[in-house]
Design a protein around this nucleic acid. Structure first.
Length: 477
DNA sequence: TATACGGTTACTATT
DNA sequence: AATAGTCCACCGTATA
């Protein structure tokens, strides 16, 4: 009412600073009571789905931001370009030393200390079972790929008509808008990890949810939107998450902590790891920045400026891990060879032009194709020996403000691409036929699925996530 | 060149 | 059943 409908640039920055500061507080375990007592008590009632996250009364998720209370500070005569971390509110003023250490662009990762899983946990029951499950499934040796070796084609092809959504495979894993969904890359588990707009990370252990427990666990390791989740196949008890407010944390199930591995004053928009290297993180930062963080030296070994605007996705080619694809709000998707990027004038191997921002660019399982998704209402398919052949397929990608942008992902071989639509369905695009050939629909999908992940081992197991915190897990048969 | 604003969109919680 | 609140994306346009 009194507060304006829109946030000005200045207000956005201030809010970001406040949230960033919250994150810092959390890391130091001196989280102020004030931020926790934000919302009035509200018993979570269950709606359509039976499975839902539950929150301990002590630790409520912040569905209401403290912005209303703190915005009044502006009227106290704060200058518009106020520097980070300084006297934004009383809480910060009380800890100037802490603020100081964070403003350094490359602070020691240990300097902030870890955030224990216990402190980040927001659920009611114990999360011991989750830790055991994560460690249990990741310790077991992986079976060989359950489906065809290279991934060029699945034996007999995937029968789209057999994909179904069973009511027990639906859960509300986190509150609010899911930005990212990921399967734990283990052949013997159905563990789904999601990150939402509030900085929550939710786990859904689908198998355990068959029993008495619902298998849902909620953590709050970040204070801003989760921009990326990265888990490696050979190291699946280590879960990396990045946040818009410039933080990367590593959840280590063995140590039961969310370690802070990197912090920056710039936004981090995407996070990835090279499949064959567990020591480095690849992420995008600020306007077009691309960084490689090297754990062995504890700093960024590479900082390139690859795009004119934010980089929305980073993807590695499965056949050659020196090759990556980036997508950017500057309207392009690019393929790069990491061995030959010129620092001053980076030249991509291939540039795909769209008429609007590009939200994603993912290599096909075989590595020979690329699928891009853009706000210009197309899905681009790039094929050919040198990715010479580009075709644009029409698809309505106008998700508006409340739904996360669509990002077309590949299934388990090169034959199908999956992308959400505004009618609560999942469109299946055939790159060969260059059109939408099928749509997954279900009366159980009560919201628009906008972010997806395909299980890396189980063919037909597709997770779709919504802006209301729900996850739908489609299965074969 | 940068900032501001209006408009677009759907889902949840509350009445 | 209806409606208020969300607000961190993006585009096009207007303004400094």
């Amino acid at each position: 009412m009194a507060s304006s409908q829109k946030l000005t640039e200045y207000e956005r920055k201030r809010l970001e600073n406040i949230r960033r500061n919250d994150e810092m507080m959390a890391a130091l375990k001196i989280h102020s009571k004030a931020t926790e007592l934000s919302a009035s008590s509200s018993a979570k009632r269950q709606r359509v789905v039976t499975k839902s996250y539950k929150v301990s009364p002590e630790k409520k998720p912040r569905t209401q931001s403290p912005i209303v209370i703190r915005r009044s500070l502006r009227t106290r005569g704060m200058p518009p370009e106020y520097s980070d971390f300084k006297a934004l509110d009383d809480t910060v003023e009380a800890t100037p030393m802490v603020a100081k250490t964070l403003t350094q662009s490359n602070p020691s990762p240990r300097g902030l200390g870890p955030l224990s899983c216990r402190d980040a946990y927001r659920g009611t029951g114990s999360d011991k079972l989750l830790m055991e499950r994560i460690l249990g499934v990741s310790k077991k040796p992986h079976e060989d790929f359950g489906f065809e070796n290279g991934g060029d084609s699945i034996k007999g092809g995937l029968e789209l008509g057999s994909l179904s959504l069973n009511p027990e495979n639906i859960a509300r894993v986190v509150p609010g808008r899911i930005m990212n969904v990921r399967f734990l890359p283990c052949s013997n588990s159905k563990m789904i990890v999601v990150g939402n707009k509030f900085g929550d990370v939710g786990f859904w252990d689908v198998d355990s949810s068959m029993d008495k427990d619902d298998g849902i666990y909620l953590y709050h390791p970040h204070s801003g939107p989760i921009s990326g989740i990265s888990i490696q196949q050979q190291c699946s008890s280590k879960i990396f998450t990045s946040c818009y407010f410039g933080f990367i944390r590593l959840m280590d199930a063995e140590k039961e902590v969310f370690d802070l591995v990197y912090s920056s004053n710039d936004s981090i928009y995407s996070l990835s790891q090279r499949p064959d290297d567990i020591k480095c993180l690849y992420f995008s930062e600020g306007r077009g920045g691309f960084n490689i963080w090297d754990e062995r030296v504890g700093k960024c070994s590479t900082q390139w400026n690859l795009h004119e605007d934010r980089i929305n996705s980073i993807d590695f080619n499965s056949e050659n891990s020196n090759i990556i694809a980036t997508s950017s709000s500057d309207g392009t998707a690019c393929i790069w060879d990491l061995r030959s990027v010129n620092v001053d004038q980076p030249k991509p191997l291939k540039e795909v032009r769209h008429n609007r921002a590009v939200q994603s660019a993912y290599f096909s399982p075989s590595g020979s194709s690329l699928a891009t998704t853009s706000m210009d209402d197309t899905v681009g398919i790039v094929t050919g020996v040198n990715f010479d052949n580009t075709s644009m397929i029409k698809h309505n990608n106008q998700t508006g403000r409340w739904i996360s942008s669509f990002r077309a992902i590949w299934g388990w071989d090169d034959s199908y691409i999956f992308i959400g639509n505004m009618k609560r369905g999942v469109d299946v695009i055939s790159p060969a036929q260059k059109r939408t050939i099928f749509t997954l629909e279900s009366p159980h999908m009560s919201a628009i699925p906008c972010r997806f992940d395909a299980h890396p081992y189980n063919v037909g197991m597709l997770a779709g996530a919504t802006s209301g915190g729900q996850v739908y897990m489609w299965t074969l048969g």
